[in-house]
Simulated assay, not measured.
Amino acid sequence: MTNTHHAIDYVELAAPDLRASQEFYRRAFGWEFNDYGGAYAGIRDADGEGEVGGLNPDGTAGPGLPLVIIYSDDLDATLQSVRGAGGEIIAEPYDFPGGRRFHFADPAGNQLAVWGKS
């Protein structure tokens, strides 16, 4: 895994119920985790080399924190995955210059967005 100067390198989300957060992200996006004994879960990079973020059970979740935006090749399918995993849709898909996106809250209350080109 290569780190890029001035690029987002790691995103940490609050996860008061660590297991529930892992299950949500596993079901919604297929994410895998490095387990650190229930005290923390690292979000594995898609290529399996390193981590791109983590779930912190000591963090405080909620709106108004930094917005993490996830890319999707199929926004509508991802919307259904998020709903099916128990996410709350905050903003239904909308158009913006360059694509479409929606916002959701995970079970801990963290608000994130997903965007796609179509």
Rank of each mutant, 00 (worst) to 15 (best):
D9N: 14
A46M: 13
S21Q: 08
L75S: 09
D95Q: 13
S81D: 12
H6A: 09
A15F: 01
F102H: 06
G116C: 13
D47Q: 12
P57T: 07
N110I: 03
Q111W: 08
D47P: 10
P63I: 11
Y94M: 15
Q22D: 03
K117W: 00
Q80D: 15
G54N: 02
G98F: 07
I70V: 15
G30H: 04
G62M: 09
A7L: 12
D106I: 06
G84E: 06
Y40G: 02
G38I: 00
F29Y: 03
N110F: 03
W31V: 03
E32D: 15
V11Q: 06
K117N: 13
Y36W: 13
G62P: 11
V82C: 02
T60S: 13
G59I: 04
H5S: 10
E51I: 11
G99S: 08
F33K: 04
Y71P: 04
G98K: 09
G62N: 04
M1F: 10
R19N: 12
R19D: 14
G84M: 05
G42I: 03
V52C: 14
Y10A: 10
T4M: 10
A77Q: 14
I43G: 07
S81K: 12
F102P: 04
A91Y: 02
D74E: 11
L75M: 02
V68F: 14
D47E: 13
E92V: 04
I69W: 10
L18M: 09
I90S: 01
D35K: 08
S81Q: 15
P93A: 09
A85V: 01
D73T: 12
A28P: 05
S81P: 01
D95P: 01
G64A: 05
F96M: 15
S21L: 14
H5I: 14
L75G: 08
T60K: 14
A91I: 10
F104A: 06
A85C: 10
E49N: 15
L55M: 11
N3W: 00
L65M: 13
R27I: 09
A39I: 00
D76W: 00
N3G: 11
G64P: 10
L75Q: 11
H5Y: 10
G54C: 05
A77L: 06
E49M: 12
G84F: 02
A61Y: 03
G84D: 14
I90D: 11
R100I: 01
P57S: 12
I43T: 01
P66A: 13
E32L: 13
